[in-house]
Structures are given as structure tokens and as C-alpha cells.
Amino acid sequence: MSLRRWFLLPAWLVTTGLFWAPMGIVLAYSLLTRGPYGGQSLPLSLESYQRFFDPLYGEILLRSFWIAVETTVLCLVLGFPLAWFISRSGPRRGMYLQLVMLPFWTSFLVRTYAWVFLLRDTGLFNSVLLALGWIEQPLPLLYNHGAVLVGLVYCSLPLAVLPIYSTLERLDYSLVEAAADLGATPWETFTRVVIPVSAPGLRTAAFLVYVPALGTYLTSDLLGGGSTILIGNLVQNQFTTARDWPFGAAASLILMVVVLAGLALVARHREDIL
């Protein structure tokens, strides 16, 4: 074996030991039968997969998909102007990027909990609105779809800003001037030049936001309450309270297929993904 191949060995070991082997175990579990007291045993069956086709789970999957799409769209819409602003702000770019990265320095759990304190009935928003006399009753801001969406967008936004920034930073500004020069209004310049030219960054941003958002369970657990169970919560439940590992394994594999299908559909070029 040449020296170069030896360099691959650590990565190969990690991938095999920490990705393929666990995936194999998950696949094996998904094909087993749930034992009467939890646990799992033979015979092999596809029962766990069949159970997933219950409309109840279909609804959960659809809801997860939908909230991931909403999160992605919102992150792109909010992230693009921010990335544009940073890429055009000269020597202060480094500082702004640090600010975008700043939330990563704190625990994800703590940041999500912070939203509980902001959104709950006695939280900051409701207190201020009550104090101003704009509302009589606290608004139901927490434990609903909107709260989960806010939490997801908040956590994913930096992941969208960074790849968009990196393409905008390389964007040749004379293209923008050329478009204006050829009679395009600012809006036309944006839709016909800036967006197409920065499409690779937008695609990368979409993947980086969409994939984790689809599998989220902590955000929906903390901010969503019982009414917004997502597929991540479903999987988590099967492995903890429900003690139905085969079904949990099947659900997580189905989730993975959905993610990969989404990637294959949107990724036109492999290099776009990362």
C-alpha cells in the first residue's frame, strides 16, 4: 500500500466504526420484533416499517418535512441580506462574522431554553406587551408550531449565513454594475444576476439548514409541547419511554431516506453540497 493510502486509514476507521457499523446495527434492529417487555428479538419482520404507514405517522413525517422547509426558506430569506451586508462591509467583515458565529460559543440547550423565557406567558415579550397595555391577556407564544419555527430559524441562521457569505464575498461586483448598466432595475439585477450567480452558496445553505431541521427533536421538545411532535421526537420516544427500538430504528431509517431523496432531488452538482 502506498503512503498516501495510509493517510486515509484514520478516516476510514472512523467512518466504518462510527457510521457504517451503527447504521448496520440500526438496520438490523429495525428488522427485529419488539419483545413483550421492551427489548427486541427474532423473528425478522418488516412489521415496524408497515406500522409507519399509519396516517398518524404520515402526519408527523409531513409536519416535520413542512417545518424543515419553512425553516430553510426563512433562513435563506433572512440570511441572504445579512450575508450581503457583511460581504459589502469592508474591513469590518471579520467582526460581523464573529458576531454571527457567537451563538455557537454557548450551549445549544441553553440558547433554546432562553426562548422559553422569552416566549412564555410571563416571559419578556408578553410582559412588555402587557405593561404597554397593548394586550389584555398573555399571547400564546410558546408550545406551538410558531415557537418551534422561531427556535429552529434562530439556531440554523448562522449555518445559512456562512455559505451564502462565502459566495457573495467572491461575487464580482462589476456583474452587478453591468446589469444596472444594461438597464436592469435593482430588483431585476437581484433576481437575474445575483441570485443565479450565488446559487451554489444558496443550495449549500439550504442543505445545511434543511437536514438538521428535519431531524430536530430538542427544539420541538422544549418549545413545541405535545401538539407539535416531529419525527425526531417520535424516534426519541421509541428509544426511551416507548421502549420500542425496532420501530424507532425503522422510523430513523425512513427519515434518512427522506433526507437523501431530498438531497438527490435538489443537488444538481455534487460539489454544491459542501
Binding site: S174, L175, E177, A178, A179, D181, L182, T185, V197
Partner: peptide
Amino acid sequence: LPPHQRNVSTVFQNYALFPH
């Protein structure tokens, strides 16, 4: 006036052709 409201056109130093 902004560039898109003038009847002039520029050939840029790096040509600024739209790459897409």
C-alpha cells in the same frame, strides 16, 4: 440618474460577462 436610466453602456475592464 441611476445607471439603468441612462442611454450609455460600459465595457468593463474584466468584461463582467454574466457567468451563468
